[in-house]
Amino acid sequence: MARMKFLCDSDRCIECNACVTACKNEHEVPWGINRRRVVTINDGRPGERSISMACMHCTDAPCAAVCPVSCFYTTADAIVLHDKDLCIGCGYCFYACPFGAPQYPRVGNFGSRGKMDKCTFCAGGPQQDNTRAEYIQYGSNRIAEGKLPLCAEMCSTKALLAGDGEIIATIYRERVQRRGYGSGAWGWRTAYRETVSI
């Protein structure tokens, strides 16, 4: 069974934010919420590096471990999804997530934040069939359409890889071998407890 993963080849990312924009447009993500964002370190200095981040769909997801209403579930292809009809907006998952992925439509405590929203790996929600109700809550379901996450498909420099973890690791490995350098599969050890050995 294929295990879905993200891999950002940070040697290629140019911080254009196309992935962020593609995601917002595809899912009509509301104002104030970003399912994906680009983080730049050493901005404007030698060694500048950008990484596109979203929910990494972790193995044994920490968000699922802390959710008091058990709204998370992991599909057989390892996509971590959540059920907004159960979510009470407590914000625990935000504190548990090593990548800061969970977002809330409103500001406040004790349920007043609204239902949590995060990257779905473009796989919709509990219903797999692209219904209107599902789109309103979770956005589109490209995986059901036989496609991959739009952020990765739209990446202007092919920095952001998504899909079968073994295949994208092989693609990254081949790139690093050909160009002779690579800064590693960022976030993989935290999310998947492994790295891409070159």
Binding site: A2, T74, A76, N141, I143, L148
Partner: peptide, 16 residues
């Protein structure tokens, strides 16, 4: 709800 959703379609293969 936890059934596998990913399929290695021609579209996906073209991406790889």
């Amino acid at each position: 709800r936890v059934a596998a959703r990913y399929r290695e379609t021609d579209h996906v293969k073209a991406y790889y």
